[in-house]
Amino acid sequence: MIQHFVPTTLKEALKILDERDCYIFAGGTDLMVQKHRGSGLLPNFDKDILYVMNIKELDYIKTDAEGNLRIGAMNRYCELINSSLVPDIFKTVFKEIASPNIRNMATLVGNIGNASPAGDSLLPLNLFNARVVLSSVNGNREVLVEDFIQGVRKIDRQKNELITEVIVPKCDLNFYYRKIGSRKAETITKVSLMGGYKIEGGKIKDLRIVFGSISTKVVRNHFIEEKYQGKSVNELRARIDDIINEYDHELKPITDQRSTMEYRKKVAKNLLRDFLKQVK
């Protein structure tokens, strides 16, 4: 018999997680689809469920002393979109995720935990070097989102751990973002790109590029990014073709029911070119 746990404190939740293997249910917008069995039937859960939506202490959005944005695990997209603390580029991304009714339920942390190659929030999180806080009865640890997601639905989480917080460092860049789906709303990403840059004195101070839906996880190459730091804007613009070539081996899209390998790769490169042309 499956048991349902609806704790109201983090301590309680972590204790339950320590004692048993549970599905963690926040907004449920991915889980209910994955476990769907048919209309009029209960979903097909094969182990206990821990509902975390009633843990009030995880419901916050704040800025800490270092200027990091701290988002509690219970925050849903609709709240983040309306918060004055959340950077605009995150809001741009969130507003293109699913539909208003899904955004009223779904959490940012859920999108991280689901670890889909098409997860849109993973792009800004990656670009901002965001970290997740994993809590268990043994304490907390922090992991970069980039490292936390290891592959398709594979994450660096122990069975007794709960993602309790997302830490987004301050990042003052010029941003570029394009999500390409099959239509203008309520669409799953076929390919996406987010870029960020900062120029000081005609030189590249910071350059960051992430691709979505192009591999098993978000693609980011720190080596290429760092190579162009300190270079002049003119040099960067002169070497756009080289940069696109350097990313070639990183872009390993697949052909599936939504698009083709050729399209995804070509458009990813087009988007990269479009972004780099805007660096000035």
Binding site: S182, R183, K184, A185, E186, Q257
Partner: peptide, 23 residues
């Protein structure tokens, strides 16, 4: 909607896109 080896590849409304009012 494409049939591959006699089976439709697009089986859900997430994969078979119809226009929304936004389109």
């Amino acid at each position: 909607e494409v049939a591959e080896n006699g089976m439709f590849k697009q089986k859900t409304l997430a994969d078979y896109s119809i226009p929304t009012t936004m389109d």
